[in-house]
Amino acid sequence: MTDTFRAAMRLMRKRDPQGQEDGFHTLLPVASDVLPQLVEEYRAEPDPGLRRWLLELIGEARSTDALPILAQELGSEDESIRDWARRGLEKLDTKEARTLLWQDGQNRND
């Protein structure tokens, strides 16, 4: 899996849009299997567009291990990052995720 992950990340970093899509779609069905690597890449990634894609993949993993990073990014200054964090928590659909979403909604309404 590590070689597949590295190859997919190389594709996602290319300037070729089709290559980027190919890399994303390589990781999509295995996101839960490579969640620790996705989180690591997300934290180290400086490119905002790639960070958004990585957070989308983290949310697609539907793993409780993603809860801390998704919760953290609910407070991001980047609206797109906040949106992907919300979507990830919605997909996770645990009591903790729902509580975080409710609290976030309350904070935005204040």
Rank of each mutant, 00 (worst) to 15 (best):
L57G: 07
T4G: 01
L70G: 06
R86W: 10
F24T: 03
G49Q: 13
R108F: 00
Q72N: 10
G88W: 07
R86H: 11
E73R: 01
W102N: 14
W102T: 14
D65A: 13
L89D: 08
N109L: 01
A8T: 01
M12N: 09
R52E: 15
Y42E: 02
Q106P: 02
L74F: 04
L89G: 09
Y42S: 05
R52C: 12
D78R: 03
T94K: 15
K14S: 15
D83P: 02
E96L: 03
D33K: 11
G75M: 10
H25R: 08
R86I: 14
E79F: 06
A61I: 00
Q20A: 10
E73T: 01
M12H: 11
E56S: 13
Y42R: 02
T4F: 08
P46M: 01
Q18W: 14
Q37E: 10
R108L: 01
R82K: 05
K95P: 12
W102F: 14
R51P: 08
R15H: 12
P48I: 13
L57T: 01
R15P: 00
N107P: 01
Q103H: 14
A66W: 06
F5G: 02
L67R: 13
R108Y: 00
Q18V: 12
V34L: 06
A85G: 11
Q72W: 13
I69N: 09
D93T: 04
Q103V: 05
L100W: 07
A71P: 09
V34T: 04
S80K: 09
I81R: 03
P36A: 06
D22V: 07
R51K: 15
N107D: 05
K91P: 06
N107S: 13
L38W: 07
G23A: 06
R52S: 11
G88N: 08
A97G: 12
D110E: 15
S76H: 00
S80M: 15
P68H: 04
P46Y: 03
D3E: 15
G88E: 05
L35G: 06
M1F: 08
E79M: 09
S32P: 00
L27K: 02
R82C: 07
N109V: 00
M9F: 09
D78L: 05
P68S: 07
D93I: 06
D93H: 08
D78K: 01
A8W: 04
I69P: 11
Y42P: 05
P46L: 03
R82Y: 02
D104H: 09
E73L: 03
T26N: 04
D93Q: 07
G59L: 09
E60R: 01
P68Q: 06
D16T: 07
W102L: 14
A71K: 15
Q20I: 05
E79L: 14
K91W: 06
